[in-house]
Design a binder for these strands. Structure first.
Length: 467
RNA sequence: GUCCCCUUCGUCUAGCCCGGCCCAGGACACCGCCCUUUCACGGCGGCGACACCGGUUCAAAUCCGGUAGGGGACGCCA
């Protein structure tokens, strides 16, 4: 086991979205690849916005994706005393100070600075103040170096340098005594001995501040790897208006976790021209250095392709189990009908999602009550009657159960009557499934069973004959 | 406004560090053909990109400079 320690640190203010999931995945992959440790930490220092529902949703998403963590989940809210201790240390050392400026004053100054085109940084009003009014509310600010530069060698983006004068004295403790994000991450990452911080691109600007904190606290500075954003089709940051962003929503839309994982790992990371990766392969081949530097657009089409691929190659029994919830939302009960695994086998080559598969499976259990009129209209009434009669006559006495054998019988019907397969297959397909988009005739008949097959064709024969 | 980052087919990307094998390769999507009893699968083929401008060099997608465009950050959110 190596010394590598990474963490995924979501804030519980919503569900696990695909961007977060990819960050978690990269952390997990690096840990697995290096034999390191993957830690899950919930960043809930914002008491106002954090909810236990969100925590549950995040854990659910992680588990569904199979991103098992080695340690945690840890909650920052459990460590408030620890943060307080370190705030005091900084205060005692003169590396932090109390600031009595009100939020309103600060907002006003910030807005004014923006308007006048100046940088909206804290003006340092309380920085050198010596008199300390005892009874007024205050925040604690970190006394940040104002000269020189802070730079780091990002594992993905390379060397990034910030002039210290751009960085102001950030608040590390709020008026209500709770610590703020930038401070907590540093304490946690340090005390958890995190060696490599992999997180979203949107944190690069926080990194120099955090480095200064590490240094002020005397902690070793970890390595950083900032992964680029995921964008929507309009190249704007991915959000709800682009469609689903929650990983659980993808589960509910009938995606397989391995498909989403495979899609996500290829979004920003590559291994030559490879597209399909099993878990073992991605773990073995993953290298943070092969993560791209630019943002990528989330493309559902490709996800669908991968999902179809994994459906095709999945164990039908497993698929059958996963399909059940999608079937029950369609009021389908499988108990009275054909074996679901057999049904899945006829459908797995032709479905991109489990939702689609469920749609296509309905007819096996609920016999069609109406038929696709447009499709039926291509055949005249006499032809339909003749076909149905011939097929029933051919099938009824036959003791066959294999799809291939059944297809042979249909070919016989064709040759004996001088019909083409299209003239026979299509009407029967409509009789059995109600429409034209269905598995091969032999497969349907074999799955449905001869008795049910005859019953359905008989019904279609009566209805089309009566019109 | 200031700072930081990014820029190869519509999309995901390979190549870039260590210039020539790249008049740029793969995948998704799209189009066509084949297969075919429908829908799919599959097979074959096609369309399609180095943001721009300069420089260095015998040679640049690859190195250097600039421009433009995009994104991110600038919170008592994370």
């Amino acid at each position: 086991m190596s010394e590598l320690r990474v963490r995924f640190a979501p804030s519980p203010t919503g569900y696990l979205h695909v961007g977060g999931a990819r960050t978690a995945l990269f952390n997990w992959l690096l840990a697995k690849n290096q034999g390191g440790t993957f830690i899950l930490r919930i960043e809930d220092t914002d008491v106002e916005r954090s909810t236990s529902e969100s925590v549950e949703a995040i854990l659910e998403g992680m588990k569904w994706l199979g991103l098992e963590w080695d340690e945690g989940p840890f909650y920052q809210s459990d460590s408030f005393p620890l943060y307080k201790e370190y705030v005091q240390k900084l205060l005692d050392a003169g590396k932090a100070y109390k600031c009595y400026c009100s939020a309103d004053e600060l907002d006003a100054k910030r807005n004014l600075a923006m308007q006048e085109g100046r940088k909206p940084k804290y003006d340092g009003t309380c920085r050198e103040q010596t008199s300390q009014p005892a009874d007024r509310p205050y925040v604690v600010r970190f006394r940040a170096p104002q000269e020189g530069v802070t730079s780091f060698d990002d594992l993905i983006k390379g060397v990034i340098t910030f002039p210290n004068e751009e960085l102001d004295d950030l608040i590390i403790q709020r008026t209500d005594g709770t610590p703020t994000y930038n401070f907590c991450v540093v304490i946690d990452d340090a005390t958890m001995r995190i060696t490599t911080v992999i997180r979203g691109d949107d944190h690069v600007n926080n990194t120099p501040r955090q480095i200064q904190l590490y240094q002020a606290l005397g902690f070793p500075v970890p390595q950083f790897a900032h992964v680029p954003m995921i964008l929507g089709s309009d190249k704007a940051r991915l959000s709800k208006r682009h469609g689903a962003t929650s990983v659980i929503a993808y589960r509910d839309m009938g995606f397989l976790p391995e498909a989403l994982i495979n899609y996500l790992v290829r979004l920003g990371w590559s291994n030559g021209d490879d597209e399909i990766f099993s878990r073992a392969e991605m773990i073995q081949k993953f290298d943070i250095k092969n993560v791209g530097r630019s943002a990528s657009v989330f493309n559902t089409e490709k996800l669908l392709w991968l999902n179809a691929h994994y459906i095709k190659n999945s164990d039908p029994a497993r698929l059958a189990g996963l399909l059940l919830p999608h079937l029950s939302t369609r009021q389908v009960t499988t108990l009275a009908g054909p074996d679901l695994v057999t049904v899945v086998n006829t459908l797995k080559e032709r479905a991109q999602t489990l939702e689609e598969m469920a749609d296509r499976a309905v007819f096996y259990y609920n016999a069609p009550e109406t038929y696709d009129e447009a499709a039926l209209a291509k055949f005249d009434k006499e032809q339909l009657q003749a076909v149905f009669a011939a097929v029933i006559a051919k099938l009824s006495p036959a003791p066959v159960t294999e799809a291939a054998e059944i297809d042979l019988l249909f070919k016989e019907v064709c040759s004996e009557n001088g019909w083409k397969m299209g003239q026979v297959g299509q009407p029967v397909r409509i009789a059995l499934s109600g429409g034209t988009q269905a598995p091969g005739i032999g497969e349907i008949v074999a799955t449905l069973g001869m008795e049910e097959t005859i019953r359905r064709i008989q019904r279609a024969r009566e209805i089309t004959g009566a019109q």
